[in-house]
């Protein structure tokens, strides 16, 4: 396992930031392992995305614009990634820890007879052996997991955990042949994009999240969004807010929602139940605004401001805006 292969998740050539984080990390790992850094990009818009990826330090980018990838659910992707892995030779396959990434990783476990380290936030190479650092049990433990000897290994990568750095001398872009003799049965009949193709919440450097204390859907727009915008971040929510139908579940942070680790997390009107805590406790700085100073969130926040969020948040937004001008 000395090479590294990055599976590039994208829609029509638009890829989340984590792809570039993985491409950068792939180079570092390949250098330490004494191998090459590869990427595989398939589906509509791949050629165009491959050009963009060339500014990252990869050796080879395997590309096919095959429309089957966008017509059938995941099976063609898995076939292509397997083909690229065979072409790259024994390798560590890096996949984003997203909904799609988890599916790809699982399929590769069976396909490549490989172990998987999930939600990696760091790597250590020890005498040619690959070890991944991963928060587990909702962050209650930081585990070190080694991939045993074998031709292939898989790691899913937490967005925002690694840095992306362009550079390198330009990868060679190679067409990868369509795997033959395959029939696909799960057809995508309708594909609806609700976002911008980016993983807004997981990749945001700052998250402003709201909970039950906001009392309804409006404050998410009128109170939280302007603050998030000033911070260059995204709006999130607790399960209580999502369950109440105030925001879509795609904004939910916690055990049953998304795990985020932004530099700055501002929790507004969130009590901080364990359900929520496990989704955000690895954030850099945590600030809570709550009317109850005894709420559990105060126990793991760097700063808790006890007061009226409806009065504090607009003032804070103004202060930050003014500091920029």
């Amino acid at each position: 396992m000395k090479n590294v292969l990055v599976y590039v998740q994208h829609k029509g050539g638009v890829t989340p930031k984590v792809t570039f984080e993985m491409a950068t990390e792939a180079r570092k790992l390949a250098d330490q392992l004494g191998g090459k850094a590869h990427a595989v990009v398939v589906g509509k818009g791949s050629s165009q995305l491959a050009e963009q990826l060339k500014s990252y330090p990869l050796d080879t980018i395997h590309v096919n614009d095959d429309a089957d990838v966008d017509t059938f659910l995941l099976d063609p992707v898995v076939d292509y990634v397997e083909a690229a892995a065979r072409a790259a030779g024994p390798s560590l396959v890096l996949v984003a820890n997203t909904l799609t990434g988890k599916d790809v990783a699982g399929r590769l476990v069976g396909r490549l007879n490989a172990g998987v380290c999930a939600d990696a936030t760091d790597f250590k190479i020890d005498g040619g052996k690959i070890e991944a650092i991963m928060p587990k049990m909702g962050g209650a433990a930081i585990t070190t997991c080694a991939l045993k000897d074998g031709d292939y290994g898989i790691a899913t990568i937490r967005p925002n955990a690694f840095s992306a750095q362009a550079g390198g001398s330009g990868a060679s872009v190679q067409a990868i042949e369509k795997p033959s003799g395959k029939t696909y049965t799960v057809r995508i009949e309708n594909d609806v994009e609700e976002g911008t193709g980016e993983l807004a919440l997981e990749e945001a450097p700052a998250v402003v999240a709201g909970g039950r204390g906001l009392g309804g859907p409006e404050p998410f727009d009128t109170l939280l969004k302007p603050l998030a915008k000033e911070l260059g971040g995204a709006v999130g929510a607790s399960r209580a807010a999502a369950d109440a139908g105030w925001v879509p579940y795609s904004l939910q942070i916690g055990q049953t929602g998304k795990t985020v680790s932004p530099n700055l997390y501002i929790a507004v009107g969130i009590s901080g139940a364990i359900q929520h805590k496990v989704g955000m406790r690895s954030s850099g700085t945590i600030i809570a605004i709550n009317k109850d100073g005894a709420a559990p969130i105060a126990e793991f926040s760097d700063l808790t401001v006890v007061g009226d969020a409806f009065a504090i948040v607009p003032e804070l937004t103004k202060l930050i805006a003014a500091s920029k001008s």
């Binding site: 945590i286 808790t304 006890v306 007061g307």
Partner: peptide, 15 residues
Amino acid sequence: KGQVVEAADGATGAK
């Protein structure tokens, strides 16, 4: 546990 600040009004909390 970090600092806990009581904010009497919006401006104090924001500051």
